[in-house]
Design a protein around this nucleic acid. Structure first.
Lengths: 184, 184
DNA sequence: ACTGTATGCGGAACAATGTTCCGTTCGCAA
DNA sequence: TTGCGAACGGAACATTGTTCCGCATACAGT
């Protein structure tokens, strides 16, 4: 790869990270290209699909989330470890405005993102749930993929008018976790 | 109101209902106008905000959901009534592709819709929850507005690749309901 | 150092869609 | 029957995703 190309890729990733944080993943492509100081053609050359750019930006943080699991597992009993990791995950998703929506848009556009998402995160949750079940700390099993999707959905901002989102997502996720423990 | 205007409003509502069911609430405005046999100008005259059209289309069904509460309350014990009504609500939201997303888009565009949504549904859930609490059938209180928002979010289609949505939303909503009953 | 070429660049051009505007039509009341 | 103002239709404009292509240039080979 030519040196200038690599430079542009880096600039694009940096710009995208900033713009996504500011305006969510639905931010206009042009604004990203502009902030990176390149033309839209350049952006599309390196990231033919919008999801490629999103994937590239969030992949690192997803991995960080996965990597946090082992130490949480080591430090806490199975049930609490599950809770703590899910809250860690919740905070990750909650701060990425529009990530959840993109993930669940249904369209094939975001398939690769969702694919990577599941591939990395699902096994981690599977292990945590199995451990908690074995320890008898939760009573219900769940499909990890479904659960991750559900939490991501709950993290979406907004809500019928009144309720400000501060803590809303966390509370609902905790309710979901509580559901894993309810009798029968 | 002139007779032809009323006719067009009806045609637009009918067309919108069909198109929304087919393609979700994000369907192009033109396609609705076309199906109704009117120009887009006419559509915008009667429904200046996109949300006005959506509101008008779904208002009736929301009301039906609210109206279902009393008979459910009369027929079942408080706890089960809560469950049944929430599942009724879940099915309503789940079949309206994009409704939840619109509701939670955050933008002021959908405020009136969300407003109406909350105004009608929140008091209903408040009553059901209070009754279940009083009967000791659930142990946690929740903010009705938050809970309704959470359920709507869970009803959004899709999910990280693998999981087909058949029953996914229902399962997660039931987990949420179970959370209301968990110890402490 | 020089040069030729393939790689990469920028942005104009195209397509889809929401929204506005205005000349024209037509329902309805006098 | 007639006149007016409400209502109509769709062209025009704005925004945004995506493609395409003429031009610039990094880098290998000499």
């Amino acid at each position: 790869m030519r040196a200038d190309a690599q430079q542009n890729v880096d600039a694009l990733l940096e710009a995208a990270k900033t713009v996504f944080a500011e305006s969510g993943v639905d931010a206009p492509v042009r604004s990203i290209a502009e902030r990176a100081g390149v033309g839209v053609g350049t952006l599309y050359r390196h990231f033919p699909l919008r999801s490629d750019l999103i994937s590239a930006v969030f992949r690192r943080e997803m991995d960080a989330c996965v990597d946090a699991a082992p130490e949480i597992e080591a430090a806490y009993p199975a049930g609490e470890a599950l809770d703590r990791w899910i809250m860690r995950y919740t905070q990750f998703v909650a701060t990425k405005r529009g990530l959840a929506a993109a993930l669940h848009s249904g369209g094939a556009t975001y398939e690769p993102l969702a694919e990577y998402f599941s591939t990395r995160l699902t096994p981690t949750l599977r292990r945590l749930v199995d451990a908690a079940l074995a320890a008898g700390e939760i009573t219900h099993d769940v499909d990890p993929s479904e659960f991750l999707g559900a939490v991501a959905n709950l993290c979406q901002a907004g809500g019928p008018s009144g309720s400000e989102s501060a803590g809303r997502a966390e509370r609902m996720v905790q309710l979901l976790l509580a559901g894993l423990r309810s009798g029968s």
